[in-house]
Simulated assay, not measured.
Amino acid sequence: MKTNRVKPTIEDVAKRAGVSVATVSRVINTQGGVRKETEKKIVQAIKELNYVRSAVARSMVRKETKTIAVIIPDICNPFFSEVVAGIERKAIAKDYFTTLSNSNDSRIVERKIVQHILERGVDGVIVTTADESGEQLKPLIDANIPIVAVDRVIKKFDVDTVIIGNREGAYEAVQHLITEGHEKIAIIRGPQDTTPGLERYKGYMQALEEHGLETKEEWIGDGDFKEYSGFELTKRFAQLKNPPTAIFSSNNLMSIGSLKAMKELNWMLGEEVAFIGFDDIEIATFTSPQITTVSRPMRHLGEVSFQLLYDRMKAGNESSMQKRQFILTPHLNIRESCRRIR
């Protein structure tokens, strides 16, 4: 017959070691002020009783959970996997755990995630929001939970933000196509209600305007940062009476879709059409020709995001720390997919 084993308590440890509960607590929480001989007795009692301290109880005393929440819009996007890896690397070093939620770029889902976070309790939140107005994040603000926005901004509230120079990266990419002799340059742009989508489109337009190049509505494709939109828009470009000689894709998944379409259409990459994608992709250097990309320091993006959040969590609610924004620099990796036009 099974018997229910009662978990040992901190009182049991104190009794076994012959000390007070307060002394055990000081040892468990590494607060110091306990003689080495006494500490050895307590450690031995903990081992003998197989005592496991309660994280919940500890959080109630310290008013912290040692847990942060990360909300991303697309768990299938390798970009976010790398950002989260950067966050977790820094978090673990500071003895924090990370919970990850996928909003599927839905403000409704994000609102539910926020409610769940409030019910479970966390010390801070890093979010790539589905809705840059930030309205669905208001309950976190009201609860004085520190927030850091990554990759997208939150317009309604003053929170720390870490983004990439989206406009500059797109401008440099299109500028390179122009120097290679291309004048008919199409864009697969992202959603215009997001910072990356809008700013990359602005960079594209800036490069064309500075060189006095024509912009045609038919060369502007409205994508959704998903693979299928890149695939469909590339097919549409190829079927135009006046097709572009170059394509700039605004994110990695749409780039993958675009490249798949080119292969299906037998549209010769680097010969009949040049191509540059925003975000490095795994296959970029394994294809023939190799793909020119605008790369971002993805892990560093996550590391900076956690550091900003950590600063906020340690500063506390009464801090007068001003809102901070970090803009990291992208890099154009020039490869073979955007050779000079013949």
Rank of each mutant, 00 (worst) to 15 (best):
K2Y: 15
T3H: 10
R26I: 07
R26Q: 03
V27E: 06
A45E: 05
K47I: 12
S59H: 00
V61Y: 05
C76Q: 15
P78Q: 12
F79A: 08
V83Y: 12
E88D: 11
K90N: 03
A93P: 11
A93D: 14
Y96M: 08
T99N: 02
L100V: 14
N104M: 13
D105Q: 09
R107K: 13
I108N: 13
E110C: 12
R111T: 11
V114E: 05
E119H: 07
E132V: 08
L140M: 01
I145E: 07
V148S: 03
V148R: 00
A149D: 08
I154G: 01
D158C: 10
T161Y: 01
I164G: 01
A170Y: 15
G190M: 13
Q192K: 09
T195W: 02
G203I: 14
L208T: 09
H211V: 02
G212R: 10
G212C: 10
K226W: 09
E227W: 10
E232P: 08
K241C: 08
T245Q: 11
L265N: 00
L269Y: 06
V273K: 04
A274R: 07
D280P: 09
T287P: 05
Q290H: 03
I291N: 01
L301K: 11
L309A: 15
M313T: 12
A315I: 03
A315V: 07
M321P: 03
Q322Y: 06
H331D: 04
L332D: 06
N333F: 03
N333R: 04
I334F: 09
S337R: 10
